[in-house]
Design a protein around this nucleic acid. Structure first.
Lengths: 190, 190, 190, 190
DNA sequence: CATTAAGCGAGACGGTACGTCTAGTCTTATG
DNA sequence: CATAAGACTAGACGTACCGTCTCGCTTAATG
């Protein structure tokens, strides 16, 4: 870090360096390998600078993770519910299993099992947003008349995405396109 | 521990004390509050005794957790697939959300996101066994002719239990009987 | 500090506030409790303002200490060597053991054991001046003919004030008037 | 450190390494250069091992300093008070100005100005012992009849050793044999 | 009379060392 | 020979100050 502070407040360069270092360490050494000291050393940042802005390492990872989900995963309108759902679930599966932020998510979801505060933040900050995106294709289908107006969308979502998260977080099995397509087929009773 | 070593081999008293201390600490302070030093202190056991018999604290929790899943959750035969599934899924939900071993499971599942070795052990030692039990009602239904002989049972299981684990591990929502019943209804297309 | 800078040069108010804050902190928390950050906070002054004018905290204390020794301890002429010395040594002892600047001196003398640069400054700026004052009564006595003309005044001074500093800095014993009077008596071989 | 702990208690090797490292650092970098981390690194010892046995770095230096004063400075009996005193004061001056433990003493005496607890320990543990040794030649002279039986030995000591400490701690001037001899001559009124 | 430049409060920055905690290893005496 | 005890190395934790560095404000001399 060349920069040193000023009255405008924090150094964006330091912030970026910390987030990248945290991401890198997570990828290279896993969650337990992410330490404040390690981040500070890799980012060439003082520990105090980290403690000044983030309460803990999970907050760093949360922030690193924050925008990625928004970038990804906004469901496009392909014209019919079948294509919409197949596309969306497939891309959700890819996100969770293949992408870098997906890896961060899995780590955070794991840590959330030990840390109710993190669990709440993760849900309110990210999962709910994702949930809203997930609703879009179904709501669109209801509007189109493809699905009944009294559909319980939340229940439907649990059935559609639940098995995907289950494979990702519990069984560790891959989530190929055939699997997500099958989920859609069952849901639409084709 | 009153006992100090003997020639007869390992001290069962020490083993029990360690497992109980680990369970207690998990309940009282959560996963991060479970430390080898804390277990040793609470169990009045030397650290070395712990290291001699368990490679890590998750192994202690795994052992503490081991038999509980077997005790629970063996699906009874109620005569028809609907009742069998409704009963089984409801009891699975109760196990995961309400029971003490369910809490241990959630902690281990969380830790497994950080620790591939634990993930493998958890799957091979416990999830596969559970998976076998989960198959029972479906296999029985196939045998009875209630379900088609070419049913992909694994796929069906993912759809049936996936949403339950999803709520438990991801959204944190409760898993009431209505929810599990609904899953069964959708699956059987009643 | 109400004042904010101007082109006329440094703020006397800030200077005073810093010196007072340093003195206060030394009295309240001792030398180790004197920190630049603490002085800045107590004086409502920016750290940079301190670093602009003083190289280190000992320089602040040196400046705070500077004039006090001059105020005190100029030896009066009481007409004869005995009275002159008794008065002077007694007041030196009081200064070192009882006064506020005496406390600062002890702290600086202590720190000088760790810091040769400070030791030199302390000697050249203050001790030598004090030494000159200490010589006055003896020189006066030589001029009066009370003491031999070839008296080694520096040697005499070491014998007269050395035991006082020794009690102050080493043994911590009190330095009552009887003690200083005794030193004079021995010196004059009464 | 090759050694690791055992039930017998602390590692003597670690203790020695710590004391030596502290001495070396004091000699090389001065008192402020003596840090717990630095000692630990140089001694190849874990910080925790240091904190287990010493409350602070001055305690380490005190212990390092402890026996040296005993080794040195026991006043021999040369048969008469003049020789006894001249020899003893000269060796005291050498100890304070030239020896390694003398350097440690100066650092501790300096720090004692900031730390009343250290001051007390230094006095009760070491200075009093030294004081006892210093009394020996005078007491011997009284016994021999060379000095009056009602001599106030403590007062005499302050006059004899005070100027030496004064030069060492305050003025920084050298303490040559002529100086100590002169002190003796004055004291004995030769 | 607008510009300029110095001193100021504020505070973020990269660092160093602090003292604490837990991990995991090792050695010994006890039963 | 397993145990309790506990000292050991290692290294991350979160805190306190260090000394450096902008920054925006205020003020008075300058042009």
């Amino acid at each position: 870090m060349r920069h040193t502070g000023n009255r405008h407040g924090r150094s964006e360069a330091a912030r970026q360096a910390v987030l990248e270092a945290a991401d890198d360490l997570l990828a290279e050494r896993g969650f337990v390998g992410v330490t404040i000291e390690g981040i500070a050393a890799r980012a060439n940042v003082a520990k105090q600078t980290i403690y000044r802005w983030w309460p803990s390492k999970v907050d760093i990872l949360l922030e690193a993770f924050a925008d990625d989900m928004d970038e990804h995963l906004f469901p496009p309108d392909l014209g019919n519910i079948g294509d919409d759902l197949r596309d969306h679930l497939h891309r959700l599966a890819l996100f969770l299993t293949e992408s870098d932020p997906g890896e961060v998510f899995r780590a955070l979801a794991g840590q959330a099992q030990h840390d109710p505060v993190l669990a709440n933040r993760l849900r309110s900050d990210h999962l709910n947003r994702q949930r809203e995106r997930d609703r879009v294709p179904l709501q669109r289908a209801v509007d189109r008349g493809e699905l009944p107006a009294d559909l319980d969308i939340d229940l439907a979502l649990d059935q559609l995405v639940g098995p995907i998260y289950y494979r990702v977080l519990v069984t560790g099995e891959p989530v190929p396109r055939e699997f997500t397509d099958h989920l859609v087929r069952q849901f639409l009773r084709d």
